[in-house]
Simulated scan of single mutants.
Amino acid sequence: MKTQQFTVVDPLGIHARPASQLVAKATPFASSIEIRTEEKAANLKSILGVMGLALKQGSQFTLVVEGEDEEQALAALTTLITEMGLAQ
């Protein structure tokens, strides 16, 4: 299992467009990928789950990746999140 913590820096938070990009990036991986806050968790392969977290600027979340391609999945998602300027 691999994990990585982030803090949302985008003033708009993680809204529909970046959420859909995250889901699109996560979906091809075989690993289980969750996005967790202190209160909730969601499957990163589910747009409704990600949107349901309502991540706003300043929110903290952790990606939890477990499976055969967990290292590649976490690296790809971390790169996407930082390149889009969503979180750090």
Results as ranks from 00 to 15, higher is better:
11 P>F: 10
31 S>L: 02
31 S>P: 01
75 A>W: 00
60 Q>C: 13
7 T>G: 02
78 T>H: 11
31 S>T: 01
26 A>C: 03
27 T>E: 13
41 A>Q: 14
32 S>E: 15
76 A>P: 00
3 T>I: 14
83 E>K: 07
87 A>Y: 04
19 A>W: 02
45 K>F: 04
81 I>V: 15
79 T>H: 12
70 E>W: 07
3 T>Q: 15
25 K>D: 02
5 Q>D: 15
52 G>K: 09
84 M>L: 15
38 E>W: 00
7 T>L: 11
59 S>T: 03
69 D>V: 05
63 L>F: 00
20 S>Q: 06
71 E>G: 11
41 A>V: 14
68 E>D: 15
87 A>I: 12
4 Q>W: 02
85 G>P: 04
46 S>N: 12
1 M>F: 06
11 P>N: 12
48 L>T: 13
48 L>P: 04
26 A>V: 01
40 K>E: 11
51 M>T: 10
82 T>W: 02
86 L>C: 09
48 L>F: 15
75 A>Q: 10
67 G>K: 03
14 I>T: 01
76 A>S: 14
81 I>A: 01
39 E>V: 03
64 V>I: 12
4 Q>E: 15
56 K>S: 04
84 M>E: 15
71 E>Q: 14
42 A>S: 13
11 P>V: 13
52 G>A: 10
18 P>H: 01
10 D>E: 09
44 L>E: 03
10 D>K: 08
22 L>G: 07
22 L>P: 03
32 S>P: 01
72 Q>M: 10
79 T>A: 14
7 T>R: 12
51 M>Q: 08
73 A>S: 09
25 K>R: 14
27 T>M: 09
12 L>A: 13
50 V>A: 13
51 M>N: 03
74 L>W: 05
78 T>Q: 11
54 A>V: 13
60 Q>T: 15
79 T>S: 13
17 R>L: 10
73 A>M: 04
13 G>L: 08
55 L>W: 01
54 A>Y: 03
44 L>S: 04
1 M>R: 11
30 A>Y: 02
42 A>P: 05
62 T>Q: 10
38 E>A: 15
26 A>T: 02
6 F>Q: 08
82 T>M: 14
12 L>C: 11
24 A>V: 00
16 A>L: 11
56 K>W: 00
36 R>W: 04
27 T>F: 04
72 Q>D: 14
23 V>K: 05
38 E>D: 14
84 M>G: 05
79 T>Q: 14
9 V>Q: 05
38 E>K: 12
40 K>Y: 06
84 M>S: 08
23 V>F: 04
25 K>L: 10
37 T>D: 07
16 A>I: 07
85 G>R: 11
6 F>G: 03
61 F>Q: 09
12 L>G: 10
45 K>A: 06
78 T>N: 13
32 S>D: 13
57 Q>C: 11
83 E>R: 02
42 A>M: 07
